[in-house]
């Protein structure tokens, strides 16, 4: 599984949505991405990529696209 597939899987499983909903997805666009869903997504990503996200990165993580940039700081390259 590529890093991008793992990243997508975290969204799909945390929010129970299809892959077609991911592009452009932002916090609170869907009911499932509320404050509780956000924590579930952060936990999924931390477990998937074996990283510990900093509080500032958690609060900056406001969209599907933004998250890709944030994970780069943890040396998680989603192009691989």
């Amino acid at each position: 599984m590529t890093n991008l597939e793992k990243y997508n899987k975290a969204f799909i499983e945390s929010f129970n949505i299809g892959k077609d909903k991911l592009d452009g997805l932002k916090y609170q666009d869907i009911i499932a991405w509320d404050s509780v869903g956000h924590m579930q997504l952060m936990t999924e990503l931390e477990e998937e990529f074996n990283v510990e996200l900093d509080i500032d990165d958690i609060t900056d993580f406001s969209s599907y696209e933004e998250g890709k940039t944030i994970l780069l700081k943890y040396e998680v390259n989603l192009d691989i």
Binding site: S35, V36, M39, T59
Partner: peptide, 15 residues
């Protein structure tokens, strides 16, 4: 179970 006051400090600042 959540602690809403703690959860609040981790939610995204912007939409």
């Amino acid at each position: 179970i959540t602690l809403p006051d703690v959860l609040e400090s981790f939610k995204p600042r912007k939409k």
